[in-house]
Design a protein around this nucleic acid. Structure first.
Length: 487
RNA sequence: GCUCCGGUAGUGUAGCUCGGCCAAUCAUUUCGGCCUUUCGAGCCGAUGACUCGGGUUCAAAUCCCGACCGGAGCACCA
């Protein structure tokens, strides 16, 4: 019993601190300004996992209230939906902030009427000096009527960008400068990809997410450490409105060792500039790229759950994800031969052969590979060959190297012990291009690879790949396969 | 500068709330062995950590203080 508990804890997330009998409502709230990265993936998985654990609700909310700096990408909304589904994290509810503007305005008005918010005309640097001196700016004590008037003018577009904004009253004398009278709304006169030019006054993330978390009945918020101060800021708002703040969990930043630092905005720039093929370029740390490379959703889930939710910033190696993915993919993937940088080997018998090769070491079914009196071996294996050496062409027969350049070998009738075993490709093999995170490999593979379109297979002694496309070369039935390297 | 937060093996994580059962868990990496007509598969084994210094205590990874290191906020970004 005790052991069982222990085991459970190791694979799972720590229990959520629950109020008694409370129904858990979790949310993942991305800005759809690009495709989901590995960082967003963590948010999707952990939040949905908690909802599952407690039989609660999982909400996907798009925090898309900045049409300028973090401008939403129209396609990205659907991408997130697809990604969530694929990760077995289908949201129970989907909310789009930019479609809820009237709601935010309503609460802004309520706050103004309560004297808890005011229209501020200070330029940023001027306000900053007030803030540093812990002093209220001249607009802080303007009466309610005048504030309402200014607010309405803001909404009508009377003021220009940066001319005015709406601040929430907190405590100008707060010890923590980060907490003093923060901005709730600012003017942005730019059309929004989703709602057009309908609005010129946009809520900041702190305001929008505070209002929505309450309205959606979110019970627990999991947020990055960079947003940690949000809780303290938002609490002022909750107090003004008489609301109860949700439970919060803060986690540190995650970085994949293999990818270094990346932000969605940065990725977007580089993709739009043509540096990358797209959001699913195998060199990118996006979910789309992992999917294309053949990673299994369960593996990705397990990986992120094992990482947990500590406040420390972490740099995790993809090797951990590979290990997890290998567990699922190894059993599924059929084996094929692929040789990189092929070298032709001529065999001195003139016979052609049909090799019977196991498709999977723990299964019975096999594949056939026809070949004539030449085969291809990989350049890497070729480099290690010595004259007179014996090697085994797997599933075919042993050969003895007669000469290296050009490569000629004799077939050996009686197999020896302990010879190196290598994979090979037949004379009628097809061209295979493997796109990897760190470059591209080209080589020749057995023709049957073309029949595995969309599947994850193992190229023996090379790695797992997903067959991404099969191109039929014009009339000649020569084919070319493009595979994406998994690991 | 002001204000917060964190620091367990190469990496990630459990343990810290309620000090002893922790000469510290699990995974991964690395190395070694075994097995196998593949492997980046499987099996077995090894290496490897409580940042430092004080304090409290019979007893500290766990509580307190300080130092050091790291991160974050102080945006009309999310």
């Amino acid at each position: 019993m005790k052991e069982k508990e222990k085991e459970k804890r190791e694979v799972g997330l720590p229990e959520l601190p629950l109020a008694k009998g409370e129904k858990v409502v979790m949310r993942f709230a991305p800005n759809p300004n690009g495709a989901a990265t590995l960082g967003s993936t963590r948010g999707i998985i952990v939040n949905s996992e908690y909802a599952k654990m407690h039989d609660g609700k999982f909400i996907l909310r798009f925090d898309d209230t900045d049409p300028v700096l973090k401008r939403p990408l129209l396609e990205a909304y659907d991408w997130y939906l697809e990604d969530c589904d694929w990760l077995d994290a289908k949201p129970d509810e989907v909310v789009v902030a930019s479609e809820r503007m009237d709601l935010y305005y309503k609460y802004a008005e309520e706050l103004i009427k309560k004297g808890a918010a005011y229209v501020c005309f200070c330029p940023a640097d001027v306000f900053k000096t007030y803030k540093e001196q812990k002093l209220p700016c001249p607009h802080r004590n303007v009466n309610v009527e005048a504030n309402m008037e200014c607010w309405e003018k803001m909404l009508k577009g009377v003021y220009e960008e940066k001319e005015a904004d709406l601040r929430v009253k907190t405590d100008m004398a707060s010890e923590d400068p980060a907490l003093r009278d923060w901005v709730a709304f600012r003017i942005l006169k730019r059309e929004h990809p989703r709602v057009g030019e309908k609005y010129v006054v946009w809520p900041t993330l702190d305001f929008e997410s505070a209002i929505d978390d309450h309205l959606l009945g979110i019970t627990h918020i999991i947020r990055g450490k960079d947003l940690k101060k949000s809780e303290k800021r938002q609490r002022f708002l909750y107090n003004h409105l008489g609301w109860k703040y949700p439970g919060t969990i803060v986690w540190g930043k995650i970085k994949m060792q293999e990818f270094g630092k990346f932000s969605t905005s940065e990725l977007r720039k580089r993709i739009e500039s043509g540096e990358y093929e797209g959001w699913n370029d195998p060199r990118l740390p996006t979910l789309k790229a992992l999917r294309r490379r053949g990673f299994q959703p369960e593996a990705i889930r397990k990986f992120f759950i094992s990482i947990g939710i500590t406040q420390t910033d972490i740099a995790v190696s993809m090797k951990n994800l590979y290990a997890e993915n290998r567990k699922t993919v190894d059993a599924l993937a059929s084996r094929y031969f692929f040789v990189r940088n092929p070298k032709e080997m001529r065999k001195k018998d003139e016979k052609s052969f049909v090799a019977k090769a196991l498709k999977h070491p723990s299964r019975e079914d096999y594949r056939e590979i026809r070949t004539g009196n030449t085969v291809y071996i990989s350049g890497d294996d070729f480099a290690k060959l010595k004259q007179g050496q014996r090697i085994r062409l797997k599933f075919l027969y042993d050969v003895e190297i007669e000469q290296i350049e050009p490569l000629v070998a004799n077939v050996v009738e009686t197999p020896a012990e302990d010879v190196p075993i290598i994979q090979w490709a037949p004379s009628e093999g097809i061209k295979v291009v493997v796109k990897k995170p760190d470059g591209t490999d080209e080589g020749i593979g057995e023709p049957l690879i073309a029949s595995e379109l969309g599947n994850v297979v193992q190229f023996e002694r090379y790695g797992f790949v997903r067959i991404d496309s099969v191109v039929e070369k014009e009339e000649g039935k020569e084919k070319e396969v493009v595979a994406y390297f998994t690991h």
